[in-house]
């Protein structure tokens, strides 16, 4: 999934997370995940001044689509000089958990 600026929203994209109003971050979602975007829905969200949405897939293709394995590999590479630092190790594990948790669409 990927979070994209709302200006790039296209009909057919599928919401991967609930859309929440930017001015009411703790308010109820305006539309729920799993919904397929349509022209009229995009227009309605635009009127509510939604700034960004999270959709399934990787429509922007930043750095291409990376697999979890590739992500974990570059994580290891970034942490390669501090493998003896217990605190850095903690941080690496937090990141690994994060990557694993968010990889599945």
């Amino acid at each position: 999934m990927q979070k994209i600026p709302f200006s790039l929203a296209q009909p057919g994209m599928i919401l991967a997370r609930d859309v929440i109003r930017a001015d009411k971050p703790n308010g109820p979602p305006i539309c729920g995940k799993g919904l397929v975007l349509t022209e009229s829905l995009i227009e309605r969200l635009a009127n509510l001044e939604v700034q960004s949405i999270t959709v399934h897939g990787n429509p922007l293709g930043i750095d291409g689509v990376k697999t979890l394995e590739e992500d974990l590999e570059s994580l290891e590479r970034r942490f390669r000089l501090v493998s003896d630092d217990p605190l850095a190790e903690k941080l690496k594990n937090v990141y690994r958990d994060y990557l694993v948790r968010t990889s599945g669409d």
């Binding site: 570059s74 994580l75 970034r78 942490f79 390669r80 000089l81 501090v82 630092d85 605190l87 850095a88 941080l91 690496k92 990141y95």
Partner: peptide, 15 residues
């Protein structure tokens, strides 16, 4: 750690 920016320091420093 997040690998966010390109170029320069790419490795995570000691905490």
């Amino acid at each position: 750690a997040s690998g966010f920016s390109r170029g320069g320091d790419t490795c995570v420093p000691r905490i």
